Simulated scan of single mutants.
Amino acid sequence: MTIDIPGYKAGTYALDPAHSEVGFEVRHMMISKVRGAFAFKEATFTLPENPLEASVTAKVDVASVDTKDEGRDGHLRSADFFDTENHPTMTFVSTGVRENGGDFLVDGDLTIKGTTKPVTFELELGGFGTDPWGGYRGGATAKGSINREEFGLTWNAALESGGVLVGKDIKITLDMQAALQE
């Protein structure tokens, strides 16, 4: 089956960290949402002629967590949550790509705090094109969700009004731009 993606060029693409981010969102006190971000360490996208055979490997610097509150960020880096001293990197390795209407689903293994679980991200291609310096780039947004407790991120506090301080479900959004390597 041939999939036609405008501007698609096969090759190996390296993530441009200055134009990429891993964002997340979680319920706080069951009444609002807290958003934050991580910095990518690196990511490589291998795009063969058939886009359904594409693969990605990505590493995220867990200590880069930024929720706009240094106290909370320090707690997230601690052993209560990510334990960045012992687990400095979060990784994703794809295991397959599937068509989903006009977009794609990317299946893979996500490793957080030493625990690996399968996850699926909905991938929306932003497109491909030549940058002002003659390089070739592609962009995409991937969205998915995980249950943080399945990855050993179990710290919480009960609230007097019922419920807990931190929700279990984490929404993840990856905004990515990558450059074709020569």
Results as ranks from 00 to 15, higher is better:
R72T: 10
A58G: 08
V93C: 06
D73Q: 03
E53A: 11
T116R: 15
D69W: 07
D80S: 08
L180H: 12
V22H: 06
V164I: 06
A58D: 00
G108S: 07
F24N: 07
E70V: 12
L110Y: 05
E70F: 01
A58H: 06
P51D: 00
I146K: 03
E49A: 15
I172S: 05
R98V: 08
P88Y: 02
N50E: 10
D83Y: 01
F128C: 12
K59Y: 08
D69F: 04
A58C: 04
V93E: 14
K33M: 05
R77E: 02
N147S: 05
L180E: 10
T115E: 09
L110G: 02
V93Q: 15
T89Q: 14
G144L: 07
G96R: 02
D83H: 05
V22I: 08
D109Q: 07
H87M: 01
D83S: 03
L47Y: 03
I112P: 14
D4T: 15
A158D: 15
E124L: 14
V93P: 00
G127H: 05
A18L: 13
S20F: 04
L15H: 04
D103K: 08
P132L: 00
D175Q: 13
E53R: 04
P17D: 05
D107H: 01
F121P: 05
I5C: 08
T130L: 07
A37C: 11
N147Y: 09
D83N: 14
I172A: 09
G102W: 07
N50Q: 12
G139Q: 14
G139C: 11
R72I: 09
P48K: 05
P88L: 04
R27D: 14
N86L: 10
A37K: 14
E21D: 06
P88S: 03
T154S: 13
K33F: 13
T12S: 10
T130H: 06
V164G: 07
Y13A: 01
A54M: 03
V65G: 03
K143T: 13
K113E: 09
D66R: 09
F151D: 09
A158E: 12
Y8I: 01
A157Q: 15
G162K: 11
H75A: 12
E149M: 09
D131K: 14
I3P: 08
P118L: 03
W133L: 15
G135K: 13
K117S: 13
F24I: 11
L165K: 14
E42H: 13
S94K: 04
G74A: 09
A39Q: 10
R98K: 15
G126Y: 06
F151S: 12
K143W: 00
S145H: 03
H28Y: 12
K59H: 12
T44M: 11
V97F: 07
T67D: 08
